[in-house]
């Protein structure tokens, strides 16, 4: 270590971040982050003017409750998109988890139980089984992408289709109902006046945030998305980390599946249709970049999720017709990405 390199002086003056450019870009980047927050706050203010009902605590809780599934899925999807991938299977995972976990949560007194011999199991069983099923599908996604090198879009398109069929097959195309109270508490119960599902989202969001921003695994996901070759030559096991992030996304989708099923008190094979796209929308509005990997944050995604929720609520409260609702949603998605691309072009 005794090197004489101290004598070498590279760069006459401090370069990089200390320069004008660095500060400028940080300001711009901050503006966009805050910009999204502004849009969100603006929407809240707008909503409270449009409808006095909006700001009622009850309504607000409802807004969050309604997007909590999307939020849960979007947490995982953010990581997947950051790794320069995509996950289309989340909606189907919701369905499969819902029917499978519900089938282990049925009350003994329920006549139409899917497995009459397996009713009245401890509350933990349906949870474990559900989470396992979702994680497994995620694992398959990751394995396909890492080992066979097929594009994530194709791999998850395949699982999305197959898993939906699996959910139908498993439930014989019928709802799985008659669920235990303990199970239903997840989607219907409240703690300290806050819906349990919302608390769940909050806790998982915090954990995920730390995982993405402060653990090696999380940073490797960013590294892989940012430049997969650089990650590889730095000795990162790309395949392993890809499998992990897709598994994690599958896990979160299955949490959403359990929340949905317990919310409506029945696991149905048609659940979660289109959730994958809504989750992607939330992530993208929140600044996760589709055009280049390695960009995206959990707080951004949460704000994106809330924006979707508030928007839905405004549209309902103001009685906008369903057709218009979709048109407006479409415009918002594209608008968000345009802003995002603008920000990216700050470079140089």
């Amino acid at each position: 270590m005794a090197s004489k390199a101290e004598e070498a002086a590279i760069g006459e003056k401090p370069v990089g971040g200390a320069g004008k450019n660095g500060i400028l870009t940080t300001i711009k980047a901050m503006w966009t982050k805050i910009g999204i927050l502004f849009i969100f706050i603006g929407m809240v203010i707008l909503a409270s003017f449009l409808s006095p009902a909006f700001l009622k605590a009850n309504n607000l809780m409802n807004v969050v409750m309604q997007v909590s599934y999307i939020g849960l899925i979007a947490l995982g999807v953010t990581g997947v998109i950051v790794s320069a991938g995509v996950d289309l299977s989340s909606g189907s995972i919701v369905a499969l988890t819902a029917v499978v976990s519900s089938s282990f949560a049925q009350r003994p007194d329920w006549a139409a139980a899917l497995f009459p011999g397996l009713t009245g199991l401890p509350f933990i069983v349906p949870l474990m089984v559900g989470l396992l099923v979702g994680s497994l599908v995620g694992f398959v996604n990751g394995w396909l992408i890492a080992k066979t090198n097929i594009p994530p879009f194709i791999a998850t398109l395949g699982t999305m289709t197959a898993v939906r069929g699996l959910a139908q097959l498993y439930s014989r195309g019928r709802p799985v109902s008659g669920l235990s109270d303990a199970y239903n508490f997840i989607g219907q119960g409240s703690l300290f006046g806050v819906p349990f599902a919302v608390l769940l989202l909050l806790v998982l969001a915090i954990i995920t945030h730390f995982m993405y921003s402060r653990t090696r695994f999380g940073r490797y996901v960013y590294a892989i998305g940012g430049n997969v070759n650089a990650a590889r030559v730095s000795g990162i096991n790309v395949g392993k980390n890809l499998i992990l992030i897709y598994t994690f996304a599958g896990f979160l989708a299955s949490v959403a599946g359990i929340v949905v099923a317990s919310r409506i008190g029945s696991g149905q094979p048609g659940l979660g249709n289109g959730y994958e796209l809504q989750a992607i929308t939330a992530a993208v509005i929140g600044g996760t970049s589709f055009s280049s990997g390695g960009i995206g944050t959990v707080p951004g995604t949460i704000i994106g999720t809330l924006i979707i929720g508030v928007l839905n609520n405004i549209l309902v409260l103001t009685n906008v017709s369903a057709y218009f609702q979709d048109i407006i949603r479409g415009i918002i998605i594209v608008g968000a990405v345009i802003i995002d691309e603008r920000r990216r072009r700050v470079r140089k």
């Binding site: 090197s3 390199a5 590279i10 401090p14 370069v15 971040g17 450019n21 660095g22 470079r347």
Partner: peptide, 20 residues
């Protein structure tokens, strides 16, 4: 410091020149 390279460790690489 040891290499006398004066670049801020916490700046994002996207903001650096090719030389840096």
């Amino acid at each position: 410091d040891r290499l006398s390279i004066r670049i801020d460790p916490s700046v994002k690489v996207v903001n650096l020149s090719v030389a840096n």
